[in-house]
Structures are given as C-alpha cells and as structure tokens.
Amino acid sequence: MTLYEYIREELLGKNPDGTIPVWKAIVGGMAAGMTAQFLASPADLVKVQIQMEGKRRLQGMEPRVHNARHAFAKIVKEGGVRGLWKGWAPNVQRAAFVNLGDLTTYDTAKHMILKHTNLKDNYFTHALSSVFSGFIAAILGTPADVVKTRVMNQPTDANGRGVLYKSSVDCLLQAIRGEGFFSLYKGFIPCWIRMGPWSLVFWITYEEMRKFSGVTSF
C-alpha cells in the first residue's frame, strides 16, 4: 500500500479533480504487487510445500517436510539461498494480476462512484468498491495462481531446475493444450470466496484506520 500510494501520488500523480487515470492505477498496482511478492516469495514457497503434504499423506506417501522450519532448511540445503526464490517469476506475475484487480479496481471504482453518483465517502461506498475489486482480482488472479502453484510444486532435477515446466509460460501453454483454457480457472470459486471477504474486510478496515489516524481517505 505504501509503494502504491507513493507511485500514485509522487511519481504519476492524480488528475486535478482527484480521480486516478486508469493507466496510472494499473502501473501502480502491478508495480507494488510485484515488488512486495518478490520479497515474500520464500515464505510463499514454504507455504505451498507444506500445503501439499496433506495430499501426499492421503495418498500414503512419505512426507517431504514436517513443518515450516524443516521446509525452509530443506529448501536452502538443496538449492542454497537462491532456492528460496524457486518459482518467483509466476509468483510475481500472479501478484501483479491480483493487485491489478484489487488495488486498481478499488481505487478506480471508488473515485468513479464518488464522481458520478450521490454516494458519500463512507462504509457503503467502501464496501461496494471492495466487491468489485475482489471479483476482478479473482478473475485475473486465478489463472496465475494455477500456474504459480504448478511451477512452485513441481519436482526438480539435480541442478534445481523444474522437470515438468521450463517456465511459467510453458506451464500456461501446457495447461491450455492439454486441459483446455478453462483449466486455468480450476478453483475459481474457492479463490473468489477467499478474496471477496478478504477484500471487503481489508478495504473497510484500511479506510477506517486512515480516518482514525487523521489521514485523508484512500
């Protein structure tokens, strides 16, 4: 949020009437999401590996990791510090699309609602804007989430390279060719169910925190 606001306010700037040009919101949202997710990629890799252990146990397979500490140590032992950024590219790409949907849509929708309707800058407007942002974020983020999960969870060779996909683009093309375009939307409903409430809670809370702190509305 800090990076997005800096890009929006300092680097690109608003229109004289306070609205945000869509292209500026897009650039800011994608840049902020990519930067933050790159820094958080190691934690996300550990999370993905732990989440897959439940499926392995159901299949009667031996667990590869036992907890977050073990997963972290295993990744570093096998691939060095660079191994913590395995799959960072699809991870960052996913964050770019999710934040494009979330930040850009909320920012744009809110200011358009305030400009073209009689609604005020209050709970209802924040909630309405967050509904749009959560839905668009799920639409844009689900394909990237599918690719990211497949790339990050694929087995690797002795050199740490994936054995199933050469890159996120290769994974995307294989999924479309082998399973059809809509295979990219496997898990869309759970994704929306997760992102919708998150967006609603986050934006209302964030706006209220700004108000409580004496900062202008987002």
Rank of each mutant, 00 (worst) to 15 (best):
T2M: 11
E5S: 08
L11G: 03
L12V: 12
K14C: 07
N15T: 09
D17C: 12
D17Y: 06
D17M: 05
G18M: 08
T19C: 04
P21R: 08
V22H: 07
V22D: 01
I26Y: 02
G28V: 12
M30E: 01
M30N: 07
A32E: 01
S41W: 05
P42K: 14
A43F: 15
L45F: 11
L45V: 12
K55H: 06
R56D: 14
R57M: 13
E62L: 09
V65Q: 02
V65L: 01
A68F: 13
H70M: 04
A73D: 13
I75W: 04
K77R: 13
E78R: 13
G79F: 03
G80V: 04
G83K: 05
K86R: 10
W88M: 06
W88Y: 14
W88T: 08
P90V: 06
R94A: 04
A95S: 12
A96E: 00
A96V: 00
V98H: 04
N99F: 05
L100D: 07
L100M: 03
G101K: 03
K110Q: 04
H111V: 10
M112H: 13
I113A: 04
L114M: 05
K115I: 01
K115A: 15
K115Y: 06
N118V: 08
N118R: 10
K120Y: 01
D121H: 09
N122H: 11
S130E: 00
V131W: 06
F135K: 00
I136M: 04
A137L: 03
P143R: 02
V147P: 07
K148C: 15
R150A: 14
M152S: 11
M152Y: 06
N153E: 14
N153W: 03
T156M: 07
A158M: 12
A158K: 12
N159L: 08
N159R: 14
G160A: 05
G160Q: 03
G162F: 05
V169L: 15
V169N: 09
L173N: 08
R177Q: 13
F182N: 12
F182R: 06
L184G: 07
Y185L: 04
K186I: 13
K186A: 09
C191H: 06
W192A: 13
W192V: 10
G196N: 06
W198Q: 12
F202Q: 01
I204F: 05
E207A: 08
K211P: 03
F212S: 11
F212A: 15
F212G: 01
G214K: 05
T216E: 15
S217P: 10
F218M: 11
